[in-house]
């Protein structure tokens, strides 16, 4: 259990001369639900693109199960790490066909027809994510929240060891935010799936994650358990905003309150 399952070691990457993140080190245990938080421009998305290899690695290493991620073959990597991006591309594709694309990492170049196993897995994960009821709709007919669920179903069909999500709750109302995050939490618990997600909302991060990495100016500012990361000191340092932190009376997780300028001035 204590084995470092997914690990970034002094990792750096960036966009040419413009912006880069440097010296990122953290590690996630198997079965952990980890979140990356930080203000806009702190390097969350850059880090995400570095891990998914959209951006060139400048230094350092990333290992999964002690294997260097960058030395894995394309398909082997996709069998181990599944990625759900913030915006699921809207195309004229049926939801079930979209989810079946998740089997590509397991198919050879000359596989022209999906196997029974492919269909079985696609069905299993569509049912698990509650996507099954609109499997015969087009992706473009779904709402943002439903598309996110379909994206997760596709990622699960890749049968990964690690699920990477880029702000899965962006642009969603609280009903869908909670629906998506409850699903991810359930997958994390039931399937033992290790999750790493970027998340903007500090309260959601505190409620759902059991490990947080706080980014600032392209570096890791603080990392650890939500209670240790989401302190008003840390948040005020990184976000330059005055906040009050409390504990959620029901879940016992940290909650962050904002205070308006007028109230602050009158005190």
């Amino acid at each position: 259990m204590d084995k470092e399952f997914f690990r970034l070691n002094d990792f750096s990457c960036g966009y040419g001369h413009k912006f880069k993140i440097e010296g990122i080190s953290f590690s996630i245990h198997k079965g952990q639900f980890a979140g990356i938080i930080g203000p806009n421009g702190s390097g969350k998305t850059t880090l995400f693109k570095g891990i998914t290899h959209e951006l060139k690695r400048l230094a350092g290493d990333i290992t999964l199960n002690d294997k260097n991620v960058f030395s894995l073959a394309y398909k082997e990597k996709a069998q181990n790490i599944a990625i759900v991006t913030q915006k699921i591309e809207v195309e004229d594709i049926l939801v079930c066909d979209y989810v079946l694309l998740g089997r590509i990492p397991y198919q050879s170049r000359f596989t022209f027809f999906e196997s029974k196993e492919d269909y079985r897995l696609a069905e299993k994960y569509m049912k698990l994510t509650d996507v099954w009821r609109f499997k015969d709709k087009l992706m473009s007919e779904l709402s943002g929240g439903e598309q996110q669920l379909a994206g997760i179903a596709r990622a699960l069909t890749q049968e990964p060891q690690l699920l990477l999500l880029d702000e899965p709750t962006a642009h969603l109302d609280i009903t869908h935010q909670v629906q998506v995050l409850n699903l991810i939490q359930r997958l994390n618990k039931q399937l033992g799936l290790t999750v790493l997600m970027i998340i903007h909302d500090l309260n959601l991060a505190g409620e759902y994650c059991n490990y947080l990495v706080m980014m600032n100016n392209g570096k890791v500012h603080f990392k650890g358990e939500p209670h240790d990361v989401l302190t008003f000191n840390n948040i005020e340092d990184v976000y330059n905003t005055v906040v009050v932190t409390r504990t959620n009376p029901i879940s016992g997780k940290p909650v962050v309150f904002l205070v308006s300028e007028q109230v602050l001035e009158s005190k």
């Binding site: 990625i83 991006t85 591309e89 694309l101 998740g102 990492p105």
Partner: peptide, 12 residues
């Protein structure tokens, strides 16, 4: 069909 980036995520 999903875009270049997402195709790469599928191991292409």
């Amino acid at each position: 069909r999903l875009g270049e980036e997402k195709a790469r995520h599928l191991g292409i």
